[in-house]
C-alpha cells in the first residue's frame, strides 16, 4: 500500500476542518458571464453576423445569508445613438435568506415566468435564437424592479411572489414586448404582481406555472387590466428531452378588443435527443398570435447543438416560418463561465 497512510488524526478535528476550511477559502466576489454570436441567413435577404449578447455577472456575498447578484449586458455589440445595440442592466438585486426555506429578493430581477426567462445561457438550450413564443408572448427576456419572496416547500416544490414595476404598453398598438420599461425611470402608477410555482420531484423533470396581474398596462393612457398565464414542462430523461410551454395574455379593455389585441397567446413543443454529451438534435413547433387569433404565426425549427465543452455550444438550425420570407438558417456559437 504505497500511497496509504494509516493511523488517523482525531475524527472531530477532521470533520471541523472538512466543514469549514473550503468555505473560508472561497472568494466573497463572484464573476461570471456568457455570450453568443449569431449568423442569420433568411429568404428576405437578411445576411447578418451579430455578436448578439455579451454578458457579465457580478456577485458578492457579505455573509451566509446576504448576497448580491447582477447581470450587465451589451446587446448587438455596439451601443449608442443610432447604433443597433443597448447596454442593459438585467439583474441587480440583494437576496436575503430568512431561513433555509425562504428568502427575499429586492432590486432588479428576471421574472420567474417560462423556461428561458431566468435560464437563457446559450449552452442550456437548442436553437441559435431564443424561441419566438417566449420572446413574443411572455416577453423574454423580461426583468422588472421590486420586491419578492422565494420559498420552497417539501422536497421539490418552489414558489415565488413578487410585486414589481409593470408594463407601459402603447394603447395604439398593445404591443406587449415594446411595453417593457426595463426599470429605466419606470412609471409605477400601476404595479404588477407575479406568482410562480415549480415542481422538480422527479430527476430530469420540471413542471412550472406562473400568473401575472396588472391593473393597467397602459399606466393611465387607456386603462387596461391584464393578466398573463403560463404553464411549462421541461424534461430530460436519459438521452431524450422535451420542452413544452403555453403562455397567454388577456387584456380587458374595449380599446384592446377593438384592435384585436385582447388575447395574445402561443405555445411550443420541442423534443430533442442527445447522441452523446457532445451532440444533440432537436425539432420545435412554435405557434403564436398577438392579434386575438387573426394573425397566427407558425414556425418549425430543426437543428443540432455541438458542445466541445459542457459550457460551450456551437449551433445550427433551419427555420420554416408560415411567412416564407422568414425561412432560412442560423449559425451560432455561445459560452458561459
Amino acid at each position: 500500500m504505497p500511497n496509504m497512510i494509516s493511523k488517523a488524526l482525531a475524527l472531530p478535528a477532521l470533520i471541523t476542518l472538512s466543514m469549514s476550511l473550503p468555505a473560508q477559502a472561497q472568494s466573497d466576489v463572484e464573476l461570471g458571464g456568457y455570450g453568443e454570436m449569431h449568423y442569420n441567413n433568411l429568404a428576405d435577404g437578411t445576411r447578418k453576423l451579430d455578436f448578439h449578447r455579451f454578458v457579465l455577472f457580478f456577485g458578492h456575498e457579505w455573509n451566509d445569508s446576504t448576497r448580491f447578484f447582477s447581470e450587465l449586458e451589451i446587446e448587438h455589440a455596439l451601443a449608442g445613438e443610432s447604433q443597433p445595440g443597448e447596454v442593459e442592466l438585467e439583474q441587480a438585486y440583494v437576496e436575503i435568506d430568512l431561513n433555509d426555506k425562504l428568502s427575499t429578493q429586492s432590486g432588479v430581477f428576471l421574472l420567474p415566468i417560462g423556461i428561458l426567462n431566468e435560464t437563457h445561457e446559450p449552452d442550456t438550450f437548442y436553437g441559435v435564437e431564443r424561441n419566438p413564443v417566449e420572446k413574443n408572448i411572455i416577453p423574454t427576456t423580461w426583468w422588472e424592479g421590486g420586491f419578492g419572496i422565494n420559498g420552497r416547500a417539501g422536497m421539490a416544490t418552489s414558489y415565488s411572489l413578487h410585486v414589481h414595476s409593470g408594463l407601459l404598453v402603447d394603447p395604439t398598438s398593445f404591443n406587449i414586448r415594446s411595453g417593457r420599461q426595463k426599470v429605466a425611470n419606470a412609471n409605477t402608477g400601476s404595479l404588477a404582481y407575479t406568482a410562480s410555482m415549480s415542481w422538480r420531484g422527479v430527476p430530469g423533470m420540471e413542471i412550472g406555472a406562473a400568473l401575472q396581474m396588472q391593473d393597467d398596462i397602459t399606466q393611465g393612457a387607456s386603462p387596461t387590466p391584464a393578466s398573463l398565464t403560463e404553464f411549462h414542462i421541461d424534461m430530460e430523461k436519459g438521452s431524450f428531452g422535451l420542452r413544452a410551454l403555453y403562455a397567454g395574455w388577456q387584456l380587458n379593455s374595449a380599446a384592446a378588443r377593438a384592435l384585436n389585441k385582447d388575447q395574445q397567446s402561443g405555445y411550443y413543443l420541442e423534443p430533442s435527443y442527445k447522441f452523446s454529451k457532445k451532440f444533440g438534435i432537436f425539432a420545435r413547433m412554435n405557434s403564436w398570435d398577438n392579434s386575438s387569433g387573426t394573425a397566427t404565426n407558425t414556425q418549425m425549427d430543426y437543428g443540432i447543438n455541438y458542445w466541445p465543452h459542457p459550457k460551450v455550444a456551437f449551433k445550427f438550425d433551419v427555420q420554416d416560418h408560415s411567412d416564407d420570407t422568414k425561412d432560412g438558417f442560423n449559425l451560432g456559437v455561445g459560452y458561459q463561465f
Binding site: D64, S65, D97, L98, N99, D100, L102, T104, F147, G148, I149, G151, L161, V163, L191, Y193, M213, D215
Partner: peptide
C-alpha cells in the same frame, strides 16, 4: 388585490426566522 398581496408578502417575510 394590491393590499392583499402586499399583506401576504409582509406575512411571509415575518415568518422567516434566524437563517
Amino acid at each position: 388585490m394590491r393590499r392583499r398581496i402586499s399583506l401576504l408578502l409582509i406575512s411571509l417575510t415575518i415568518m422567516g426566522s434566524v437563517f
